Simulated assay, not measured.
Amino acid sequence: MAPKTVLIVYAHQSPSSFNAAARDVAVQTLTAQGCKVIVTDLYTMNFRSAATAADIKGNLKNPEHFLYSDETFIAWKEDRLSDDIKEEQRKVTEADIIIFQFPLYWFTVPAIMKGWMERVLTQGFAYTPESIYDNGIFKDKKTVLSFTTGGVESMYLPDGLYGDINVVLWPLQNGVLRFCGFQVLAPQIFWCVADAPPSERTAMLEAWRARLKGLLDEQPLSFAPTKLFDLSLQAGFRLRSDMKEAYASQPYGLTTGQHLGKLLPPNNQTKASPNENH
């Protein structure tokens, strides 16, 4: 079997941070397994987060009304994207799995990592209107969010002050990653590391190291397959009526996003359910 390639997209300003330690554990563990590991260190690179016309070489097709998605799609087809975007796209193409390592900022990724997603995952390269979700361009690749939080785990429970972590993760895991076709693995969450004693931080890293040894073989999270939806403009791309009827008597909704006005399925965005069939 050919060695796997792992891309780590890393966002933290300090080389002495816990996130840096988690990144290093991933590099060491995966390299020891024979993987090729590539690290994109966004802050060290001074990666530009703003998606602008500067991302395109040459003339714009419609400079009077600049539409980033349209212009970058054309530029991608004509090989006119900026060099930094092209280099990151090359890494993504090569990678079998992408690990995003970051601190949770304002319930999402840091701005510099959001900029990476906006600028690198361009139309044409990462998706087309026809190639999304189950038919996504990256359906043969895996990805995982690995991040630290400022709050303790109980604050992110359904009755916690911050609200259900599954709801927090839905836009990133379904709206960005699975939208592009990725098989999304359960997130690796390091709870409240700033207040954890050294022994607990060490234990967290060792748990990550242990998981990394089997990460490439993990089953992805469960998302609603596109075949369950009526994919027509007339129907509004909504869940098929027979599926709504099938779930009418169920205690939980289909997913965190398609909850159907019911209780959210527990841990839908945090734990894989290999036995769940839709």
Results as ranks from 00 to 15, higher is better:
204 M>Y: 01
76 W>I: 13
23 R>Y: 08
266 P>R: 07
161 L>Q: 15
181 G>V: 02
69 S>N: 13
165 I>S: 01
188 Q>G: 10
75 A>M: 07
60 L>E: 05
5 T>W: 07
65 H>Q: 14
277 N>G: 10
13 Q>D: 13
217 D>E: 09
236 G>R: 00
218 E>K: 03
226 T>D: 08
179 F>H: 06
124 G>N: 09
256 T>Y: 00
76 W>H: 15
219 Q>V: 12
70 D>G: 13
216 L>T: 11
273 S>P: 04
186 A>Q: 01
85 I>V: 11
207 A>C: 11
170 W>Y: 10
13 Q>K: 13
182 F>I: 05
51 A>G: 12
23 R>D: 07
57 K>G: 11
224 A>T: 09
72 T>N: 02
257 G>K: 04
237 F>W: 06
155 M>E: 12
157 L>N: 11
51 A>S: 14
9 V>N: 06
43 Y>C: 01
256 T>V: 00
196 A>T: 08
232 S>V: 09
60 L>N: 06
101 Q>I: 10
255 T>C: 07
189 I>C: 02
152 V>Q: 10
195 D>F: 09
201 R>P: 00
214 G>K: 05
137 I>G: 09
1 M>G: 14
126 A>N: 04
9 V>F: 07
91 K>S: 09
223 F>N: 04
165 I>C: 03
272 A>R: 02
166 N>W: 00
87 E>D: 15
78 E>R: 14
159 D>Y: 07
120 V>S: 08
24 D>K: 07
249 S>A: 09
193 V>L: 03
70 D>Q: 14
235 A>G: 04
184 V>K: 07
89 Q>K: 05
248 A>T: 03
5 T>R: 12
206 E>W: 15
20 A>V: 12
274 P>K: 01
262 K>I: 03
28 Q>S: 15
166 N>Q: 03
239 L>Q: 01
175 G>T: 02
90 R>D: 13
233 L>N: 14
3 P>L: 12
155 M>A: 15
205 L>G: 10
56 I>M: 05
232 S>E: 11
152 V>F: 11
82 S>K: 11
139 K>M: 06
276 E>F: 06
267 N>Y: 02
242 D>V: 03
149 T>H: 05
90 R>G: 14
157 L>K: 12
49 S>C: 06
193 V>I: 04
237 F>L: 08
178 R>M: 08
119 R>C: 03
135 N>H: 14
15 P>M: 06
116 W>H: 08
261 G>M: 03
171 P>Q: 10
138 F>P: 09
165 I>M: 04
55 D>S: 09
89 Q>I: 08
116 W>A: 08
76 W>G: 13
142 K>D: 07
155 M>N: 12
243 M>C: 11
264 L>H: 04
54 A>V: 08
157 L>A: 15
